[in-house]
Nucleic acid binder design. Structure first.
Length: 603
RNA sequence: GGGGGCGUGGUGCAGGGGUCAGCACGCUGGUCUGUCAAGCCAGAGGUCACGGGUUCAAAUCCCGUCGUCCCCGCCA
């Protein structure tokens, strides 16, 4: 029996046709006489009917032996269902297949969980162990298809823009710095190792030197770091690099790419250009460089109001260069002492020392610091926060980076708790004017915010030079290197960083200035990236690019906050594959061949 | 590296020192000719994650281990 139709496509218009469908048994309902078998393939479910009067030659008898998840081929005639027995919850619910022939292509053991969207409740480790069963479920199958639709749309779009998809090696050279790398021992070269690329960053710049001009790749990247709900050891980037372009060209390209994908895959119009937010402004208003702008509750600076108040913590914080900032949680004035205490503990894990609160009740103001503030000061606080009766103002006083981190996270948390984040809304924005360097206090040096090949903004080149003759020491707030802005840009969607890139430095003199600032002399740099620096001496075009996280995009489109949902075969939190058991031990002979000896871990 | 949640038949959960191995779904058998979460009857299925301790007595309390999830650090 050869399949003529897929289960999910059959409709009233097929009535009368002789068909063969194949698939898995979703459900059987045996009424002693008539037997219903719901058959599922990836397109959907259709009901087949085995009537003893019409399914002869032992077919009915065999149908009664069928169990869930058996693989069947069923032949029969598509018929309109008897009036009153249509199932509006099935796309194929107007019809059924009156079976005349049935073949069991393969029986199946009872599955560890039912193949149904109800299985979302099943412990994830069971789903991961039997991933091939998990992926049979409509929700997972839809995400697999969604991911395919997205990558297909990306490829079509990039092709239309004149880009070439070029594949780059997975066996690559170790360039330490940044994330830990996955290491692959070399059999042919004793004691030497490849690493899996953290990203194709250097390769794509070489492709620019090679004259490719417009490159993209849907590239697998590997990072041996601890996972999170939105992080896996291997993940995928839509990696893009272009020559002879400026920042604006890349932003525009990526905006059009996202708009194209949303339109084609979801039928959703995305407005372009995306809003642009300066890095400093994002930090000031949202406390993060990846703000979720789907709701308000922005951070408000109260430093000037409270700096002369009698509350010593506020006073001293402002006097020592710190800030007092707040957010207004609507309708939370009734929070109990315990609830506020729990929130306080929660923000303390991000370095905040405490949480000052002002509850604006019907007739009274509740606050542990009220006695230190005048009525005018309190009124001004409420006014500036936009607080209404019933609201709760939450304040953090600390150094600016701590205030931003703690309040930024608190804003998100309260936004979630209070249900302020609208579903079905997609807020894209760009973060620009990002500093080129961040001060690394532990190592007492500047580190690149992005990577060492990121170019400074042309207008800040003088600052980069000035840093070498500065009168203040590195790390000082007035040091020029702290003020150099990078020609880089991050794209944020609903609070996720979905893309980040930069215009690269292609000139040797500028590159040396950058290396110098991060304490890397040219010889050291040559050891690490000599191949790239040498390439740059043979005519490197001005170039820049971006990398767009594929999984995060799919997560947002699929409406899940679990990255494992959008990866066919993901790993657990400690990077194991529960289905295969990887990583596994390797036999001594193989290890010897690889010139590798393992050290038993200590108790 | 650190913090927290969870772990009881295949799956989801209840039980929180004795009388407590319970429910639902699934599974097996029977019955039933229009169901679609089919119905009805019967049945099987458990090292209460593992190890140690406390106790006359532990699924239950304590300690440790393992597994998994979330978070901090980390992820240029």
């Amino acid at each position: 029996m050869k399949r003529t139709h897929v289960c999910g496509e059959l409709r009233a218009e097929h009535v009368g046709q002789e068909v063969v469908v194949t698939g898995w048994v979703q459900r059987t309902r045996d009424h002693g006489g008539v037997i219903f078998i719901d058959l599922r393939d990836r397109s959907g479910v259709v009901q087949t009917v085995f009537d003893p009067a019409r399914a002869s030659g032992g077919v009915h008898e065999r149908a009664s032996q069928v169990r869930n998840e058996f693989v069947l081929a069923v032949q029969g005639r598509v018929a309109k269902r008897p009036a009153g027995t249509e199932n509006p919850r099935l796309a194929t619910g107007e019809i059924e297949i009156v079976a005349t022939e049935m073949e069991v292509l393969n029986p199946a053991k009872p599955t560890p969980f039912l193949i149904s969207d109800e299985a979302d409740k099943v412990d994830e480790s069971v789903r991961l162990t039997y991933r091939y069963l998990d992926l049979r479920r409509p929700r997972m199958r839809n995400i697999l298809e969604l991911r395919h639709r997205v990558t297909k749309a990306v490829r079509d779009f990039m092709d239309g823009e004149g880009f070439w998809e070029v594949e780059t090696p997975n066996l690559w050279k170790s360039t330490p710095e940044g994330a830990r790398e996955y290491v692959v021992p070399s059999r042919l070269h004793a004691g030497r190792f490849y690493v899996l690329p953290q990203s194709p960053q250097l390769c794509k710049q070489l492709l620019m030197v090679a004259g490719v001009e417009k490159y993209f790749q849907i590239a697998r990247c590997f990072r041996d770091e601890d996972t999170r709900a939105d992080r896996q050891p291997e993940f995928t980037q839509i990696d893009i690099e272009m020559s002879f372009v400026e920042q604006e060209d890349i932003l525009s390209l990526v905006e059009r790419m996202y708009a194209y994908v949303f339109k084609r895959v979801m039928g959703i119009e995305i407005a372009t250009p995306f809003p642009r937010l300066r890095y400093a402004e994002a930090l000031a208003r949202y406390g993060t460089d990846k703000p979720d702008t789907r709701f308000g509750m922005e951070l408000v600076d109260l430093s000037d109001i409270v700096k002369d108040s009698g509350f010593r913590v506020f006073q001293q914080t402002v006097a020592s260069g710190g800030q007092v900032k707040a957010i207004c949680a609507p309708g939370c004035a009734g929070y109990s002492r315990k609830e506020v205490e729990d929130l306080t503990k929660w923000v303390q894990q991000f370095g905040a020392k405490g949480l000052a609160t002002f509850a604006l009740g019907e007739s009274e103001i509740r606050s542990q610091v009220a006695k230190f503030l005048t009525a005018e000061q309190m009124e001004e606080i409420f006014r500036r926060c936009g607080a209404k009766t019933g609201d709760l103002v939450l304040c953090v006083a600390d150094q600016p980076d701590v205030v931003a981190d703690a309040l930024g996270r608190l804003r998100l948390e309260m936004g979630r708790r209070l249900g302020l984040i609208p579903k079905g809304q997609y807020n894209f924005l760009w973060i620009v004017d990002v500093p080129l360097f961040g001060w690394n206090a532990a190592e007492q040096r500047y580190d690149p915010m992005h990577h060492p090949f990121c170019a400074p903004l042309p207008e800040d080149l003088e600052l980069l030079k000035a840093g070498y003759t500065a009168t203040v020491p590195p790390g000082h707030p007035d040091h020029p290197w702290g003020k150099v802005r990078a020609n880089l840009y991050d794209c944020v969607l609903n609070g996720y960083e979905v893309a980040g890139g930069s215009i690269r430095t292609h000139r040797r003199d500028v590159q040396e200035l950058v290396f110098g600032a991060i304490g890397l002399d040219f010889e050291q740099a040559k050891e690490r990236f000599g191949f790239l620096l040498e390439a740059f001496e043979y005519g490197a075009p001005p170039h820049g690019g971006i990398a767009c996280g594929l999984e995060r995009l799919i997560m947002i489109l699929a409406g899940t906050d679990n990255i494992r949902d959008v990866i066919a075969f993901p790993k657990t939190g400690d990077a194991r594959d529960l289905m295969t058991g990887a990583p596994t031990v390797i036999d001594d002979q193989t290890l010897a061949e690889l010139h590798v000896r393992t050290i038993p871990s200590e108790e």
